[in-house]
Simulated assay, not measured.
Amino acid sequence: MNHPIPYGRQHITDEDIAAVNDVLRSPYLTQGPKIGELEQAFANYIGSAYAVAVANGTAALHLCCMALGVGPGTRVITTPLTFSASANCVRYCGGDVFFADVSSDTVLLDPAAVRTLLESHPQGYFSGIIPVDFAGYPVDMVAFRELADEFGLWIIEDACHAPGASFVSETGTEHRAGDGSLADLAIFSFHPVKHIAAGEGGMITTNNESLYKHLLRLRTHGITNKPTEFTAPYEGEPERGGWYMELQELGYNYRLTDIQAALALSQLARADSMLDRRRELASRYDSVFAEAAEKGIPVQIIVPPDGVIHAYHLYVIQTPNRKGLYDFLRTKNILAQVHYVPVHLMPYYRNFGWKPGDFPNAETYYAHCLSLPLFPTLTNDEQDYVVDQVVTFLKAV
């Protein structure tokens, strides 16, 4: 191929550009009507009662921790196999991060490992869990909800990779990632390589009205201008007029703009078709690599069982000579990527005592994983080229 093929890429259409242009010609650029439209449309798409649009996925995580009261002395469990924001949000609030290993079958946070960690400490030692729908594979939120109820924990579901993902529980109930049926709060990202691109942007979903109202305030400096939420007047206070607002707690400017909301709304309108294309491409990869593995070619893939609907933000293979394959593909204009360096091995977290060997499943996966190109506008010819180059290299290993 004469052009580079990245692991992910946004898809911007004429309709997207027109939607943004309409906002640029309107009276609103920041917190205008498109914000509410996006929140309602996204809540409908995910299946949650409420949605709060924010500046990015990291801001969404931070605000969730704030709304749930994370602070010094708060201990939260998450996976080491994620982008660092899933852990950093706890540190932003002064809390302590604990990790539990992933399952070797799914590379998702392992409920059994979390239970072991919980049972090794007194009841009440931990406050919450942040499981991650890694690569678009939805976590078993039923198992985590049972743990949360047993040990008195809250749950933030990091669903940045998984809009449109779902799983069917043993009772036959379908649970969509982030629908609020099992997690207290869930978060999504509108980064360009995600399913819905807004440049930057994020969303929090919940079925809890109290948390929803709190988040609305926290994303705007902790300020409210709603008279029903005002505190009682203080002695000698001047008369309140239409200008009046209250800073009720310390919040942040984590607002999304109408420009970004318009782009996300336009993208959301075709979210299902883009998701279908991701799954079609993943299925093509599955067929080739499953056949290659049967022939003894050193490649491993993760295929979810029946009842699990994967969103395929990433398509990941595992192979022994990952570094060699990564370098080879770059010579062929294929910009594969690695997701992720385990968070506990980052220098910042090693300062807290985490070390190699703490989470062998996550570390083994990291040593072998490579994310191949997967995005809705990837052509079949481009994908065939990627597959040919991967198989060519692995045959020679």
Rank of each mutant, 00 (worst) to 15 (best):
L218A: 02
E37T: 00
L215D: 13
L329V: 12
L345H: 03
T30I: 05
F83A: 09
L374G: 05
Y365G: 03
I302K: 05
A49T: 15
G180N: 05
N2L: 13
F188D: 08
P131S: 01
V114H: 01
I77P: 12
V54C: 11
G307N: 02
I223F: 14
A51E: 15
D388A: 11
P27T: 07
Y340V: 01
E291C: 10
L182Q: 06
A198W: 06
Y315P: 08
M66G: 12
G242R: 10
A177G: 00
A55R: 13
R240M: 05
G57D: 05
I156V: 15
I309F: 03
A59G: 08
C64M: 07
A41K: 11
D276V: 13
T231H: 12
T82L: 06
P4D: 09
P298R: 14
V386C: 07
T231Q: 10
Q318C: 10
F359G: 02
G71V: 13
D149G: 14
V54A: 12
A100S: 15
F359W: 09
F188K: 04
Y45D: 03
A100Y: 07
A186M: 11
A162W: 01
I17C: 00
F375V: 02
H121A: 12
G324Y: 00
L265G: 00
G172P: 06
S127Y: 10
H191S: 08
A51T: 07
K332C: 09
A143S: 15
P347Q: 03
P342S: 04
I129W: 09
P298Q: 06
T205Y: 10
G172N: 13
D384F: 03
D179Y: 02
H214C: 09
L345P: 05
D286L: 03
M1N: 14
V341S: 14
G236R: 00
N361G: 03
E363I: 02
Y366K: 14
N361I: 05
N2F: 10
G57V: 03
A269F: 08
A162L: 01
Q260L: 01
R240W: 08
L216W: 04
V397N: 12
